[in-house]
Design a binder for these strands. Structure first.
Length: 437
RNA sequence: GUGGUCGUAGCUCAGCUGGUAGAGCACAGGAUUGUGGCUCCUGCGGUCGCGGGUUCGAUCCCCGUCGAUCACCCCA
């Protein structure tokens, strides 16, 4: 008894059948269109990298548990990329001196993480990465990244009812912890993680966690005023350059008319340690999908791992899985018919087939997509095939048409059919194409 | 990693307190050999995830296991 192999894709990964691929291409090409309209250029890097480039910035635990890593045949420790940022930092560092700054670079890599798949989170996903490196004026770069993030979602048809960009600044939090709470830098990270959780837990639980971290009543009270008084708190501490900076960003975004998309949210921290300035997360506002869609921030130290020269950098990564969930949740997801517009039906005689093939080639040379039938036996089957493939036009050259130098065209949407000479056919097809656009 | 839910035809699912399975869709053929959709007829299709237990008898109850999925943990 034959045991068949499983047809399922590997856990946490997906097959993309042609109809799904069409939607994916729409998603990716929309991304490309928008970021390129801001002057971004596309790059790519290898799927496999030396393991060590991920060790520097992430904790051991994550590397061990969430990275696909192995020894290659030369006993080198390598990893399948779990994120793109170290790769792009490596590329920037390598050619740092010759690259014309600032760089606006983007990529749409597939990334792998070894983890338990769940809603919005798979083992393989694609992620739009947009980064600006080496801007003279970091403020302008930060603004541009925020505007780009908003424009991307708008390009998919989303508006301020659908999402909100929650913005914060790492330095402000650090200053609160250091200057107001007098906490040493070692405790910033665990407290940051607790603050990150704030919206998911109750106030009592939140206070409890902070107490366990060693905060007293007074410190917790101060922290609450930072978290809850928001802009008022920033105004009161405008002598801090970070607070002043964020207020300036918010003002600028207001002047740009995108303030309705932005919330200043001091509870946004983000997991990575390497953020040094603004941090943000874009949230779905739908009650059934209240989750972080994507996020990013400023990370000025990262290229320092690869060279003496540090390049300031700001960027974000937008995953395809969460974006797809978001678009579907709001009815913004799109599906597309196949591109092929012409189906050439065939009769059995070789002479007719050769003639049909020649015409098909001529039409292709004029830019049309023509699918040849691979079934010359039954015309009904061939029409059925074209219909089921959603190809709108069927061409037929039978012996009658052949003798008369004509070609029959049937429009499957209307049911109408006409006979044309080849020149008339070309004119007809071009006219039709124009009307569709 | 922890917990919940679910595994029945290629797909989506039904199957009553336990009596060895059904629908729709899909697929194949025909009504219709130079014309698709609609309709009708016929057919193909199942170790009821796997292993064990209880029982005269298990798709159904129990245990285990594997898989899927959701939530949590963790976290882009």
């Amino acid at each position: 008894m034959a045991e068949f192999l499983s047809t399922k894709p590997y856990k946490g990964s997906r097959d993309f059948y042609p109809e799904e691929m069409r939607s994916r291409e729409w998603m990716f090409s929309t991304m490309s269109r928008v970021v390129e309209s801001f002057g971004f250029e596309r790059y790519d890097a290898p799927l496999i990298e030396p393991l060590e480039i991920y060790l520097r910035k992430t904790s051991e635990e994550i590397v061990n548990q969430q990275i696909y890593s192995f020894l290659d045949r030369g006993e080198r420790k390598v990893a399948i990329r779990p994120e793109m940022t170290p790769s792009v930092a490596r590329m920037v560092a390598r050619r740092f001196s010759e690259l014309v700054k600032p760089l606006r670079w983007y990529s749409i890599p597939n990334l792998w993480r070894y983890e338990q798949p769940s809603r919005g989170r798979l083992r393989e996903h694609w992620q739009l990465n947009c980064d600006i490196f080496g801007a003279q004026d970091e403020f302008l770069a930060d603004i541009e990244i925020l505007l780009l993030a908003i424009n991307l979602l708008k390009a998919f048809g989303a508006n301020q009812e659908h999402f909100r960009l929650k913005l914060s600044h790492r330095q402000i939090l650090n200053q609160v912890l250091y200057e107001l709470l007098s906490l040493p830098p070692e405790s910033w990270l665990p407290i940051g993680r607790i603050i990150d959780k704030k919206d998911k837990i109750t106030v009592a639980e939140f206070e409890d966690l902070l107490q366990k971290e060693g905060l007293d009543r007074e410190q917790i009270k101060t922290l609450f005023s930072y978290l809850e008084e928001k802009e008022d708190f920033l105004e009161r501490h405008a002598q801090w350059s970070s607070a002043h900076y964020l207020l300036r960003i918010l003002k600028f975004l207001e002047d740009m008319g995108v303030r309705p998309y932005i919330d200043y949210d001091p509870a946004i921290v983000r997991g990575f340690d390497y953020y040094t300035g603004i941090v943000f997360e874009v949230y779905d506002r739908h009650p059934e999908n209240r989750r972080s869609l994507f996020g990013g921030g400023r990370y000025d130290e990262l290229t320092g791992a690869f060279s003496k020269e540090k390049v300031n950098a700001v960027g974000f990564g937008m995953g395809d899985v969460t974006l797809e969930d978001f678009l579907k949740t709001h009815g913004l997801w799109q599906t597309f018919p196949r591109k092929t517009e012409l189906f050439m039906a065939l009769f059995g005689e070789e002479e007719l087939i050769v003639h049909s093939q020649k015409l098909a080639q001529k039409l292709r040379d004029h830019g049309f997509c023509v699918e040849m039938s691979l079934n010359s036996a039954r015309l009904g089957r061939q029409f059925e095939e074209a219909h089921r493939k959603e190809i709108p036009l069927v061409l037929v050259i039978g012996s009658e048409e052949y003798k008369a130098g004509l070609v029959l065209v049937k429009d499957l949407n209307t049911g109408e059919q006409r006979r044309f000479s080849e020149e008339e056919l070309l004119r007809y097809l071009k006219e039709r194409q124009k009307n569709l656009k």
